[in-house]
Design a protein around this nucleic acid. Structure first.
Lengths: 348, 348
DNA sequence: AATTAGCACTCAAGCTAAGTGAGTGCTAAC
DNA sequence: GTTAGCACTCACTTAGCTTGAGTGCTAATT
């Protein structure tokens, strides 16, 4: 039994219809709606074959067929057309970018919102992971009440600060000098792996400021640690409630709780991506029991040469794969453009 | 017809039972469960009175009674006991605080999560609003690619930074000098209302750096503006799905969509609070059509003398008011403690 | 050999009718 | 004022029936 042209067409018809209606698709429906030039009986025979091959499933004896995970997989890998981002979608994306966005966090959040709106699915994204970042500058500044601000800037112009309490707080001018010494010593060092010699030298050069120096190192370590445990955000989960798959509150609750816990998802999103393309997890392929009725399509965005993140779309298994893939690709392009423009060494 | 002791007891019994079961409460149930020393017939008569007075409602002829908004209002105002935070709850709150929290945002988020967990309702909170803040320090620093970081610290030790692109970027030492000049001139000025004379003087003193000076003023203005539009966060919405009130997905979806839009809620949360106490909106009292089956209990937290925020709990109208109020009060105390300890002029 | 028409069969979903039980309101007795 | 008793109401459940979409099989047709 071979998968000829006609079988593929019928499978596609079933998937299309099922994506649109969420109802099992019968042979007569296909015969009428899709012009295959054969009768429903023939289609019935073909469907019987497709079922035997495992691409479609009959939920119960007198119902139509719905695609199996395997069927979706075949569709995604071989049948689906990957169309370009539509005009309307592009316009929305551009209007998003043109807003005065200066915080990555905020940009990602807005992007996710937009994606959810465009697709009517949920959007998952990770905070950008910064690997192999090198320290560019460290700045200290005094605050009220014996508090010290420690600010770290890394390549890619990512800036983070932290406020700590110190026993002894030098004058600002002195702090500036200390900052300069620290910066000189640590500049271009890898955040993850600071040379022990440098550390020792710093403690020596800044005798009397042990407390501050050690707080600086602590802060660096904390930033590295906070990056390690990737953080995920989800938006547009409401959309999921619109699908009959989740018309049972129990199911919706389960899904939402799984999403909230995040650890399972986290593993999925941080999985290595083999190439630059999207990764598609259909139904059980995600390995998450609670998400067997969902599919996830993820991809990575990159900017600079050491900052990456993952963004993905989550929907029911019968999601519109073709649309989702193109939206995802289109939006990632946009993010990368914005970020590169914002953080790279433009103007060198 | 007067609201005597017995009627109040019966109303309380109805509310208690309804809070626990979400089922209409009948006269026999009350006679059995609550030891009022009268028969169900008597209770029936009293219930009939209570209904006439508008405190309870009969959903249909052969059903028990449920409390009306008015009934809950009476309960909340006159009957409810405001008990102290329990042991278990206190322990959780303390363990939250002891984590190394240094970002207000993060603290609020964790607090909200904890409240949701304790109460099994949803928690709403606003980012802290900073009013009448005075500038303490402004710091400039150069970054790669002609980017300039502008950092503003205000009293209460709130630090924000922004990265902008500039045409001409001075050396760091020069930027430090400029920072010092700017700080000297603007220190203790109100963020919202910077003296025009100071502005002029600054432009004069820093001739040649017009671009930078104007960017600094822009940044200040943006921070003020970003504070004006209060931002809300919601956590624990999943909890709502557990209540039979939302076992219809349609209802849950409506609620979630209303919550997502936020403008309606925003108005509610930013309403002036008459006193230091909690504010309770029962059912339609919120004025939000979609939330007629919900109640919201809000309160404000304060730290320093110019930073305030609102935090609230959202649940079904039959929520456990007594518990919610005490959790809310307890948690707010905790937040205030942490924040004051973190940001105030301790050690002066 | 492939396709199709025809028909018996299956089964979820929708409808109806009867039964159940929690709850009320009223009346008469205490 | 309180209570027992009883008729009445009405949502909810259950079982049985009907409907219709859909299948699988067979025999006829191309």
């Amino acid at each position: 039994m071979s998968l000829d042209e006609r079988k593929l067409k019928i499978l596609q018809a079933i998937i299309n219809d099922y994506i649109a209606t969420a109802e099992p698709v019968g042979s007569r429906t296909i015969a009428k709606k899709y012009d295959l030039g054969v009768s429903s009986a023939t289609i019935r025979n073909e469907m019987s074959d497709l079922e035997e091959m495992g691409f479609i499933i009959q939920p119960h004896a007198s119902a139509g067929r719905i695609p199996s995970d395997m069927g979706y997989r075949l569709y995604v890998d071989n049948i689906m057309k990957r169309h370009k981002l539509g005009e309307r979608e592009k316009r929305l994306a551009v209007s998003l970018i043109s807003k005065n966005i200066n915080q990555i966090q905020y940009l990602m959040d807005e992007t996710a919102r937009l994606i959810s709106k465009l697709t009517n699915y949920a959007t998952i994204f990770s905070d950008p992971i910064v690997k192999n970042t090198r320290i560019q500058k460290i700045q200290l500044m005094s605050l009220e009440g014996n508090k010290l601000m420690i600010l770290i800037a890394t390549d890619g112009n990512i800036v983070k600060h932290k406020i700590v309490e110190v026993r002894y707080l030098p004058e600002d001018d002195r702090l500036y000098e200390i900052s300069t010494v620290i910066t000189e010593m640590l500049k271009n060092q890898l955040m993850e792996n600071i040379d022990e010699n440098c550390k020792d030298t710093l403690y020596q050069e800044l005798t009397g400021y042990d407390e501050i120096v050690s707080l600086v190192f602590d802060t660096i370590e904390q930033f590295v640690a906070s990056v390690e445990k990737e953080k995920f955000h989800i938006s547009g989960t409401n959309n999921m409630l619109a699908y009959p798959e989740f018309s049972d509150v129990e199911k919706a609750k389960n899904l939402f709780q799984t999403l909230e816990k995040k650890d399972a998802l986290s593993k999925l999103l941080s999985e290595p991506k083999n190439n630059n393309d999207v990764q598609i997890y259909i139904g059980n392929e995600s390995g998450i029991e609670e998400m067997k009725d969902c599919s996830i399509i993820t991809t990575t965005y990159e900017f600079g040469n050491n900052i990456t993140g993952t963004i993905g779309i989550l929907g029911p298994t019968r999601m519109n794969y073709s649309q989702v893939v193109s939206v995802l690709n289109g939006m990632v392009e946009n993010i990368e453009d914005v970020l590169n423009n914002l953080h790279n060494k433009k103007g060198d």
